[in-house]
Design a protein around this nucleic acid. Structure first.
Lengths: 226, 226
DNA sequence: ATAAATACCATACATATGTATGGTAAAATT
DNA sequence: AATTTTACCATACATATGTATGGTATTTAT
C-alpha cells in the first residue's frame, strides 16, 4: 500500500506548520495505523504494531503511541482494544501537491512549482511515483473526465492503445487517449470538437509522461479544501 | 442502517433460494455488526454486542456469531479481537427476482465494496466518518457518477437541496439528489429514466445516511489491484 | 414423536490487550 | 555539562476478549 505524504511532517527540515512534529519512527507508525485502518478496516493492536516493526514488546509501541497522542495525531479510548483514532485535521485526507494543470483540450503549461494542494482521501491509492494534475477543459468529457477533476498520473513509458495518458509537447501538457500505429502516435480527445494530435514517436519535443490511473473529484462544498 | 441487503432474509415470506437463511435475531446482529463497522470504524466485541442486545453473557453472542459464520455471512479471525469480517458476496444480493425489479425502476442498488487489496468487500469506514460505496447502476450518470465509481460518503443528518445523498429505504440503498419541501423529501435521479422518489421525512423505513462528498474512479489496469 | 435447531443462561479458562513501572543507551536540547 | 527527548528493553498486572463446556426451554423440522 502506498501512502505518499508530501507534507510538512514528512520533511523535518520544512517549516513548522503543525505545533508538534512527529519523529520519523512515529511518522512510520502513524502511517501504519492509517494503512491498517484503511486497508483492513480496523486499527492494529499494540502487538501487531510491535510485530510489524520488530519490537520485542508492546511497551515500546505503547510509548510511541503515547508520544503520537501527546502530539495530537491520534486519540485512544483507554481500556478499549483497537480503538486508535487518527485525529488529523482532515483526518485521512492527506495533502498532496498538485503539480499543475493539464489541458484536456488545448495544451496548458505545467507549473514550475506546486502552487496548489489537494486533500486526497487516504484510500485513494497513489502509486509511488505518481503525481496529480488538475484537468482544465472539456475535451475528455466523453471519457467522463471533466474540468476540475484531479487526475492521478503514474509515470510510465509504455502504453496500450486506448489508455488515457498525459503527454507533454512543447512545454505544455495534455490529457488524451493514446493510440499508436507504426511510428506515429495519435492522441485522441473524446470530444469531437478537438482534433487529434499526431506526432512521430521519436519527436524530441514530445514526450508521454505517464498513464492516468485514476481520477478524483470532489463534490459538495468545504469538505475538501481544494 | 447503512448496510442493507435486499435479499431473502429481509423478507421472511419470500421463497427460499438461499441455502442458509439467517434468523431474525442473527440478522439483527449482523446488521449491528455492519452498523458498528460503518459508524464506528471497528467491529464490536462480543461484550459490546451482548450489551446492545441485553444478553447477560458473551456466550450467547458467541453462539449467534458462530451460527452466522456457519451460514457464511461473516468470518472471524480466531483469537483476534474485533476481527469480524463481513463476507458479502454477490450471492447475498438478490440474484434474480428482486434484482429485476431494482434494475427496472428505482431504487438502484449499491453494494459495499472495498477498493483495497483486502478481500472483504465491506464498507471501509473513512475516518472523517466517511465511508466508501461503489456505485452500481446508471441513475446518476447525468451527474457524472457512473457504475463502478467509488463514492465517498460522509454521514450526516442535514442536507441542502441539490446535494447528492445516500439514502436507505425499504432495505435498499440509493444514491440520489436531495430535495426537501415541507415535510416531504424528494430524491431525484439525474437520469430522467428514473422517476424521483418521494417520501415523508419521518418515515421510519427511510433514512438518509450521508452526503456524497466525493467520487473516485480507477482507470487503467493492474495499477490498483482491486 | 423424535430429533435438530434455536435462544438463552452460567461458569471456567487461556490469551490478547492495554497499561504501569523501571531500566539502559544514544541523540538532541538547553 | 546537564537535561530532556527519543528509542528501545524487561517484567508485571488487570481486564478485555474469545472460546469451551454444560445446562434449560422453546421452536422447528423429520
Amino acid at each position: 500500500m502506498v501512502f505518499i505524504h508530501v507534507n510538512k511532517w514528512d520533511s523535518p527540515n520544512g517549516s513548522m506548520s503543525m505545533s508538534k512534529e512527529l519523529t520519523e519512527i512515529q511518522h512510520k507508525i502513524l502511517n501504519f495505523l492509517i494503512e491498517q485502518k484503511v486497508g483492513r478496516g480496523i486499527p492494529p493492536s499494540l502487538a501487531e504494531i510491535a510485530l510489524r516493526f520488530g519490537y520485542k514488546n508492546r511497551a515500546t509501541v505503547q510509548q510511541h503511541l503515547q508520544a503520537i497522542e501527546r502530539k495530537g495525531y491520534i486519540k485512544k479510548n483507554p481500556k478499549l482494544s483497537r480503538s486508535i483514532e487518527i485525529t488529523l485535521e482532515d483526518k485521512y485526507f492527506i495533502p498532496h501537491p498538485i503539480l499543475g494543470e493539464v489541458a484536456a483540450g488545448n495544451p496548458l503549461t505545467i507549473y514550475p512549482d506546486s502552487i496548489d494542494t489537494i486533500q486526497l482521501p487516504a484510500i485513494v491509492k497513489m502509486p509511488a511515483e505518481s503525481f496529480l494534475l488538475r484537468v482544465k477543459g472539456d475535451s475528455l468529457k466523453d471519457a467522463f473526465i471533466f474540468s476540475g477533476d484531479v487526475i492521478i498520473v503514474k509515470p510510465d513509458t509504455e502504453f496500450a492503445n486506448g489508455q488515457i495518458v498525459v503527454a507533454i509537447l512543447e512545454d505544455a501538457a495534455v490529457v488524451k487517449r493514446f493510440y499508436k500505429k507504426g511510428g506515429s502516435i495519435k492522441l485522441h480527445s473524446e470530444n469531437p470538437e478537438y482534433k487529434p494530435i499526431v506526432i512521430e514517436a521519436n519527436d524530441p519535443k514530445f514526450k508521454i509522461v505517464g498513464l492516468v490511473v485514476g481520477i478524483y473529484r470532489t463534490m459538495g462544498k468545504k469538505i475538501f479544501n481544494n
